[in-house]
Amino acid sequence: MYLMNISNYSGDLDKFQKDWKNVERFLEKHQLDGVELICYEEDYLDTLPRHILKGLHLKYFPTWLEFYKNDHQKVCEMFGGIEGVRQYYGGIHPQTLIDAFRDEYRSAQEFGVEYMVYHVSHVTTEHSFTRAFDYTDDDVLDATVELVNQAFDNDSDVMLLFENLWWPGLTLLDKEKAQRFLDRINYKNKGIMLDLSHLMISNPNLKTAREGAEYILKMIEKLGSFKEWIRGIHVNLSLPGDYLKMDHRAEYAELLKTEDPFERYLKTVGHIKKIDWHVPFDHPLVKNIIDLIEPEYVVFELLAQNLEQLDGYIDIQNKAIGRGAK
Rank of each mutant, 00 (worst) to 15 (best):
L256V: 13
L237E: 09
L266F: 12
M246S: 02
D247G: 09
L256A: 13
I290M: 10
K218H: 15
E228A: 14
S238L: 06
A253V: 12
V279L: 05
E228H: 14
E211W: 07
L285Q: 09
R210E: 15
K273I: 09
V299T: 12
P295A: 09
D260Q: 11
V235Y: 01
P295F: 07
G212Y: 05
Y252A: 05
E228I: 12
T208W: 02
N205Q: 15
L303Q: 03
K273F: 07
E296Q: 14
K245C: 11
K287H: 05
R210C: 10
L292C: 12
H278S: 06
L292E: 12
L285G: 08
K274T: 05
L302C: 02
D260E: 13
L206M: 04
K287V: 04
Y252W: 10
F226V: 01
Y265Q: 12
E221W: 08
Y215W: 14
W277S: 07
E301G: 08
E259Y: 14
L206Y: 05
P280T: 01
E214G: 07
E251F: 01
I272F: 02
G270A: 00
N236Y: 02
G241N: 08
D291L: 11
I233D: 04
E214P: 00
E301W: 06
H248G: 08
Y215D: 04
Y215S: 07
P261K: 08
L256K: 14
P261F: 07
Y252V: 03
N205P: 06
A250E: 14
R264K: 15
V299N: 04
K257T: 13
G270Y: 08
A209W: 01
G270N: 04
F300I: 02
F262I: 12
P240Q: 06
K207Y: 10
H278L: 09
E296R: 14
K267Q: 03
L217W: 08
F262Y: 15
G224W: 07
H271L: 05
K257H: 11
A209N: 02
L237N: 10
L266W: 09
M219A: 14
N288L: 10
K287G: 05
L266V: 10
V299W: 00
T208V: 03
P280Y: 03
S238I: 05
L255W: 02
P240T: 04
L239I: 06
K257F: 08
V279P: 00
H283I: 05
Y265K: 15
S225W: 09
